[in-house]
């Protein structure tokens, strides 16, 4: 019985089978990672709820249906928006042209810090293009990220996105909160 030979399996086509599987996966799958700008929507408002905010605390950003930008009543180019927001949100104590400043206790740091009360109010027309809207959101995000980086560098000596310690991230988030308010859409067909 020892002489009995097991016939060799021809493995030459194995490669072809594997190739077919490989090509199948290459075709059906996508490599790209999903990226985008993450935002939180506000909960639906109750009726008769009117939060009063002082005029000086609000930076009004309006985008019309021709994709033109107006900030606090003046026309502006999209490239200038970021610097304008940074300038607006930076803490300027005792300057009536800038938003109010309040002293807030930051638990994570164990000390009081000056926090701006400024809010960016974004309002767009129904005819605004999505591309423009994203550019504006992007500019706002860039402004807040720059300020967080600045704060993070001052406090911890490194950029915000390099922070690992959750407490430190929380502290920076409290000092520079992302305050973008999107106006409730109105059903008025403004022209």
């Amino acid at each position: 019985m020892a002489k009995r030979q097991v016939p060799e399996i021809n493995a030459g086509t194995m490669a072809d089978i594997a190739f077919l599987l490989l090509i199948f996966f290459l075709v059906t799958t996508t490599m790209d990672v999903d990226t985008g700008i993450t935002r939180m929507l506000p909960p639906p408002v109750q009726k008769n709820e009117n939060i009063k905010v002082k005029e000086r605390n609000v930076l009004k950003v309006l985008v019309n249906s021709h994709d033109m930008l107006m900030v606090n009543g003046k026309r502006m180019d999209i490239n200038e928006l970021k610097n304008k927001v940074v300038d607006f949100m930076t803490v300027h104590p005792n300057n009536p042209n800038y938003p109010e400043v309040e002293e807030k206790m930051i638990k994570e740091l164990g000390k009081k810090m000056l926090v701006s009360k400024g809010i960016v109010s974004l309002k767009n027309d129904r005819g605004t293009s999505y591309k423009m809207y994203i550019s504006v959101q992007d500019a706002l995000a860039a402004a807040f990220n720059e300020m967080r980086n600045q704060t993070s560098r001052n406090l911890f000596g490194m950029d915000y996105h390099l922070l690992v310690n959750k407490q430190k991230i929380k502290a920076v988030n409290k000092i520079i909160p992302i305050r973008i308010s999107e106006a409730e859409p109105e059903n008025i067909e403004a022209k």
Binding site: G36, L41, D125, G127
Partner: peptide, 25 residues
């Protein structure tokens, strides 16, 4: 796309309680 439809979708999402959104880019 015009923002009108996006605003409408956002309103629907707010009503449904899906607050965390991501504008894909």
């Amino acid at each position: 796309t015009r923002m009108g439809i996006v605003t409408d979708i956002k309103q629907q999402l707010r009503k449904a309680g899906a607050f965390k959104i991501n504008y894909s880019a």
